[in-house]
Every structure is written in C-alpha cells, then in structure tokens.
C-alpha cells in the first residue's frame, strides 16, 4: 500500500506492506536512531513522535502514520544535542543505546509539563529502560538541564523536608510499575 508521511519535516511517499511497523519504516528511511530493544512495548527504545506526541514505534503500524507527521531524533538535532551534553557531563549517556528513545521522551516531557516535580519526571519517563546508568545520572542531567532552561524556577522537591513526603507518596502507590 502507498503511504505519505512527513518524516522529520519532509514528505515521503512509499509503498509498504500493510503490516510494516513504524519502527521499521523509520529505520528503512535512514532514521537509525530508532532502536529495537524488545518486541513487547516495554523498553522505550523506539520512542518517536507522531504529530508531536511520543509513541512506541514498535507498536504502531506505519500505515497509521499515513498523512501524519513523524519526528525522530534525527529531526531534533539541536535540542537533542543540548540535552545530550547535560547527559554526557553526568556520565549518564553510557552505552547510548537507550538514549535516542529516552531523549525523545525527555523533550516531549518538556513540551508537555511545566515545572515537573521529580515524581512527575519519573512517571513520565518510567517506560524508558536503561541498564547501564542506574538512572540517577539521568535525573541529575534533567535537573541541570531544566534549571538551565529556567534558572529562577525552584522545584518543590529541592526542598529537603519535602523528600520524606515524596517518599511516602511513592511508597503508597507503587512497588514495581514497569509498563
């Protein structure tokens, strides 16, 4: 079947199998940043934007993108590089395999949430797995990056007495929320 997709700002017309996944479509069009880490929508490596919203491209048929706009890391070079530098400075980029999907979601979060709390950040990004970093460096990088974006903003959870409150909140609502 023929589809027309605006991939990273350029319209592409392609003849595809109806069961082709958006992940494979992106990779076939040289967006190699889109990675496959599982087949069960668990790892977040294949995150791209469909009309500006993050989706797992392993779970979306390419046909669904017909007439829509798809953005991958290749289409967000400047922004991605900026955040990537914060990540690298913390040593948090490590093997790098999860970074493209992770960064796509971080940039989407920035657009969607104003002054996110730590809890909101963790929940937004929970679906992006990383096996190297242990995640703590990701948080440091996100904090510093957000601070640089909005220096005056003082996030609530920077205040020490709120830590225990936050912890209680987390304990009450979850054990392992891996989606």
């Amino acid at each position: 079947m023929e589809i027309k997709v605006k991939l990273n700002g350029k319209w592409i017309v392609d003849n595809i199998d109806p069961d082709m996944l958006l992940l494979d479509f992106c990779r076939a069009h040289y967006c190699k940043s889109v990675k496959r880490g599982c087949e069960t929508s668990n790892c977040g490596l294949c995150t791209v934007w469909l009309d500006g919203k993050p989706v797992l491209s392993c779970n979306v048929l390419a046909a669904r993108a017909d007439g829509h706009e798809v953005t991958t890391l290749e289409g967000l070079q400047e922004e991605a590089k900026e955040f990537g530098m914060f990540l690298a400075r913390e040593g948090g980029e490590q093997c790098g395999f999860c970074n493209p999907g992770f960064i796509m979601n971080v940039l989407a979060m920035k657009r969607e949430l104003d002054n996110p709390t730590d809890e909101e950040i963790l929940e937004y990004l929970a679906g992006n797995l990383c096996r190297c970093s242990g995640y703590a460096s990701h948080m440091r990088a996100i904090h510093k990056w957000l601070d640089s974006k909005k220096e005056a903003a003082q996030r609530e959870d920077h205040i020490p007495e709120n830590r225990e409150k936050m912890l209680a909140h987390r304990l009450s609502k979850r054990t392992q929320k891996h989606w």
């Binding site: 069960t40 929970a126 995640y135 990701h138 987390r170 392992q176 929320k177 891996h178």
Partner: peptide, 17 residues
C-alpha cells in the same frame, strides 16, 4: 521470555543512592 515477564529495575525503583 521478555520484559513483561523478566522485570529489570525502572527509574521508578531507584532508591536514594
């Protein structure tokens, strides 16, 4: 056989380190 069954820590699971 996959990450649905075999759970690795997510960022929701990090303690204060």
């Amino acid at each position: 056989r996959n990450f649905l069954q075999y759970k690795i820590p997510t960022r929701m699971d990090i303690p204060e380190i």
